[in-house]
Simulated scan of single mutants.
Amino acid sequence: MKLKIVIITLVGAIILIACATNPFTGKQTMALPGTENSSLFPAAFQQYDQFLSDNKVIKGTADAAMVTRVGQKIAVAAERWLNANGHVGYLNDYKWEYNLVDDKTVNAWCMPGGKIVVYTGILPIAKGEAGLAAILGHEVAHALANHGQQRMSAGMLQQIGAVGLNVALKDNKNLGLFNQAYGIGTQVGGMLPFSRSHETEADSIGLTLMAIAGYNPDEAAELWKRMSAQSGGQAPPELLSTHPSNDSRIANLTALAPKARAEAKKFGVTSFK
C-alpha cells in the first residue's frame, strides 16, 4: 500500500512539471508550484539589493557606463525578438538593472527578473563591448529561459524522489548506502547534464541576442578561447561539471554564429561591432 501511495505521489509530481514553455525553443520546461515568477522575482530582487549593499558597486566610470549600455542593448534585443515571435508582454515583470562590482572574480550573472552584475575581474577577458555582449547575452538568456525556475523544480523533484523511494524501500539496513547511491546517481546522471544543457541553451540564445544588438556573434567563441587560456586548462571533466568543457563550448559557438547572424538580419542588422 505504501509503495502504491509513493508511486501515485511521484506520478502526480511529474504531471505537474511540464507546465511552462521556453519561448526561445518552444519546449515545455519544469515549473513546479512555488517556482512561478510571481514568487521567484520578488525574492531575487531582494537578494540582489542585499548583494549590492554588501559589495562595492562602481559608478560613474567608463566601464560602469559600458556595462549599462551593453546590458540595455541586450535587453532591447530580447524584447524585439520576443515581440516579433508572438511573446508580447513576456518581459512585463522584468526589472532590468545593471551594475559593475569591484571584485577580481572572473564572473558575471543575471538573476531571475533581469538583475545583472558584472565583476571587474571579467572585463580584461571581455576586451571591450563585443566580448561583454557575449557575456551578458549568455547571462540574460538564463533569466529569459527561466533556468532558475527549472533548477529549483529539478531540485524539488530530486527531493521528492528521494523521500518517495526511502518510504518504498523496505531494506532499512541499506538505507544509507541507497541514499548515497541515489544522490550520486541523480547528480551525475540528472542534475549535472541538466545544468550543462542550460549552459548550451544560454549560449545559443545569447548569440542571437548579441547579434540583434549589433555585436559580432563570432566574438563569443573568441571570448571563450580567452577564458580557456585564462583558466590554464584547470577544469573538471565535463561529465562531472555544471558547464560544458571550454573546447565543446568554443566549437558550439563557432557553429552557431552564422545562424545568429542570419537571425539578426531579420531585424535589419547586417553589420556588427
Rank of each mutant, 00 (worst) to 15 (best):
E201M: 10
D63K: 12
K59E: 12
N179H: 03
P112M: 07
G128T: 02
T25A: 00
G233I: 13
S53L: 12
M210H: 06
N174W: 10
K95V: 05
R249W: 05
I74R: 12
L132H: 04
L10H: 06
A202S: 09
Q234M: 14
A141P: 14
A145W: 00
L3F: 15
I8R: 08
T105L: 06
I5K: 10
A64V: 04
S197H: 13
E201L: 10
S241W: 06
I205G: 08
N37D: 15
G190F: 00
Q230C: 04
D171A: 13
L82F: 13
A141T: 11
G34V: 02
A43V: 04
V76R: 13
W224C: 06
P258W: 14
Q46F: 02
A143D: 05
K170P: 11
P23V: 03
P23D: 07
S228P: 09
D93S: 05
E199A: 02
P236F: 01
E79Q: 11
P112H: 08
A220R: 06
T21Y: 02
Y90E: 00
N85I: 01
M227P: 00
V163G: 02
A154N: 11
M1I: 06
K266G: 09
S39T: 03
Q159P: 05
I205N: 10
G60S: 11
A75L: 14
A44R: 04
A78H: 10
N174Q: 08
I116Y: 02
N246D: 14
K266P: 08
S228H: 10
S39K: 06
P112G: 06
T25E: 01
A77P: 10
A43L: 02
Q159N: 12
G190I: 01
P258H: 04
Y215F: 15
H198E: 09
N92P: 13
A108M: 03
T61H: 15
T29E: 08
S248A: 08
I184G: 07
K115R: 14
A213M: 08
D63V: 12
S195L: 05
I212N: 15
L177G: 12
G71N: 06
T9M: 07
A126M: 14
S204D: 12
Q47A: 08
I14N: 05
A84D: 13
T68H: 05
V140N: 00
Q47P: 00
A143L: 11
